[in-house]
């Protein structure tokens, strides 16, 4: 299975490639007063509104230097709904993005022949940890993160 890999702080994170709709775009974030602090703001993605969350804030990462211009991963919310039954279907109508420090690239992980995966004790949003080459990849669940932010009206 192919994963896209990105960083925040000193750690590497990955999500299945099909959950990513776009890798970075020219964004200008408008902060949203009153919104959860993990929400960086809203931007326009070719005329559509994209709500952007900050991966550092979501995971409570403070270490490491923040690059001057961080990248935004545009998530495929329809795919997220497909992959996670528990994910609120209403999110499928919104475009969601996440600011990360750097986008590393795409890796091929084969879980069937690997015993590298172990349940993480780190945080509630990490579904597993995989060793890939010399790196430790944290496999993330964005639906869990987003559900955690969303409190409902």
């Amino acid at each position: 299975m192919r994963y896209s890999v990105f960083t925040a702080g000193n750690s590497y994170y990955g999500i299945p490639i099909q959950q990513v709709q776009e890798f970075d775009f020219e964004y200008k974030l408008s902060p949203v007063p009153y919104a959860d602090e993990r929400i960086s703001g809203v931007s326009s993605l070719r005329g559509r509104i994209i709500t952007v969350i900050d991966l550092r804030k979501c995971l409570g990462i403070k270490e490491g230097n923040e690059p001057r211009r961080r990248k935004v991963l545009v998530l495929d919310s329809l795919q997220l709904c497909k992959d996670y039954d528990t994910f609120d279907e209403r999110f499928s109508k919104d475009v969601l993005g996440v600011v990360v420090d750097r986008i590393e690239g795409i890796v091929d992980l084969d879980f069937h022949h690997s015993l590298d995966i172990e349940r993480s004790k780190k945080g509630n949003f990490i579904e597993g940890v995989v060793n890939h080459e010399d790196k430790v990849l944290n496999l993330l669940s964005f639906p869990l993160i987003i559900q955690d932010i969303y409190k409902g009206p």
Binding site: S44, D88, I149, Y150
Partner: peptide
């Protein structure tokens, strides 16, 4: 949806300069 609880806003818009 994620910011639907911000009661001081009734919506949003993309301005002519592309800013939201």
């Amino acid at each position: 949806l994620l910011i639907s609880d911000c009661h001081v806003f009734s919506g949003l818009t993309v301005l002519e300069n592309g800013e939201v």
